[in-house]
Amino acid sequence: MNRKMLFKLVNDLVMTVLMLIAMAYYITGNMIHEVVGVVVLVLFIVHNFLNRRWYKAILKGKHTVRRILQIGINLLFLVTMSMMMISAVLISSDLFPYIPINNDMALRQLHVQTAYWGFIIMAVHIGFSWGTIINSIRRMTGITGTSRIRTIGLRILAVLIVAYGVHSSFEAEMGSKLFIYNPFGWFNDDSTIKFLIDHLSIMGIYIAGTHYALKFIQSQEKKVVQKN
């Protein structure tokens, strides 16, 4: 694996973990939340800079079902994250307190809702690149061959993660958070570790769902090509 690809993976991994930490607002407190948010903003800008060629190639080449869906998700992720970060700066009380905002309730709602939607869209975004991520990890670890036992083991692990993710999603009231704004916050007594495990498992639902849905779409497209 070349250094650029490794840097991309590390940048994206750190950004993902920090986004999860930023979501744990009532565990970290406001100052840490804002500092982590600024770092996420920087990493997000780096992520888009490193993938700038993708934007130039949007209208080029063949637009398959997979590619159309990926373009839609990526652009939606960009818009959602941009709205979340702009609203974050405007409502900041510690790092950017000098920005005068009289009635910030609408901005707070925008920030919270886009944060939760960004979390879900980010997981789907990762799901689109999951095959590439796995192949990169294989090259890093020197795994070149296939193993039926390893494949079965990983799929069982994926099922367990998804199952726990569904449980965590209901426990964390994720559906309500996506559609209902609670000005008093969503309090819980979770530890930082449990919060991260729960939300990583929730991400697992959308990563696995997207990955296997794309494999199904790809197999259907191959069948159509073979028939023609």
Results as ranks from 00 to 15, higher is better:
225 V>Q: 06
34 E>W: 07
222 K>F: 14
20 L>N: 02
75 L>C: 04
210 T>K: 00
29 G>K: 02
5 M>L: 04
101 I>L: 13
116 Y>T: 05
56 K>N: 00
185 G>V: 07
52 R>K: 11
9 L>W: 00
61 G>Q: 09
210 T>I: 06
167 H>S: 07
4 K>H: 11
148 R>H: 14
174 M>N: 06
159 V>Q: 15
214 L>C: 10
117 W>Y: 13
6 L>Q: 14
145 G>P: 08
79 V>T: 03
53 R>V: 02
15 M>L: 02
71 I>P: 05
126 I>F: 13
26 Y>F: 08
77 F>P: 14
109 Q>V: 05
228 N>E: 11
95 L>T: 12
207 I>S: 03
37 G>D: 01
44 F>W: 05
193 I>E: 09
79 V>R: 00
29 G>V: 03
184 F>T: 14
84 M>R: 00
173 E>P: 11
121 I>P: 00
56 K>S: 09
62 K>F: 07
60 K>G: 11
146 T>N: 13
227 K>S: 12
17 V>E: 05
180 I>P: 15
82 S>D: 01
185 G>N: 07
70 Q>V: 06
51 N>E: 02
51 N>V: 05
89 V>F: 04
59 L>M: 07
19 M>A: 13
101 I>P: 06
213 A>H: 04
58 I>M: 06
208 A>N: 02
81 M>L: 01
190 D>N: 10
36 V>K: 10
44 F>P: 03
178 L>F: 01
18 L>P: 15
54 W>N: 07
19 M>G: 09
32 I>Y: 01
136 S>A: 14
194 K>I: 07
131 G>M: 13
197 I>K: 01
82 S>G: 09
206 Y>L: 15
9 L>N: 06
205 I>E: 09
69 L>N: 03
158 A>N: 02
132 T>H: 15
37 G>A: 03
223 K>V: 14
37 G>S: 11
148 R>N: 14
25 Y>K: 09
5 M>S: 11
166 V>M: 05
98 Y>G: 07
218 Q>S: 10
43 L>G: 02
128 F>T: 03
67 R>I: 10
95 L>F: 08
211 H>A: 11
132 T>S: 12
203 M>N: 05
87 S>N: 00
95 L>Q: 08
34 E>L: 13
39 V>Q: 01
25 Y>L: 03
156 I>K: 11
115 A>V: 07
214 L>Q: 04
126 I>E: 00
64 T>M: 08
95 L>E: 02
213 A>W: 01
7 F>Y: 06
190 D>V: 00
203 M>A: 01
87 S>F: 07
154 L>A: 05
175 G>F: 00
77 F>E: 02
33 H>D: 06
141 T>W: 15
145 G>N: 15
131 G>V: 14
152 I>W: 09
121 I>H: 05
171 E>C: 07
31 M>H: 07
133 I>G: 08
74 N>D: 10
17 V>P: 04
196 L>W: 04
101 I>C: 10
174 M>A: 06
57 A>H: 06
93 S>V: 10
188 N>A: 02
222 K>R: 12
94 D>N: 04
179 F>W: 14
154 L>K: 12
172 A>N: 08
119 F>N: 07
208 A>K: 02
127 G>F: 05
213 A>K: 02
72 G>I: 09
196 L>T: 11
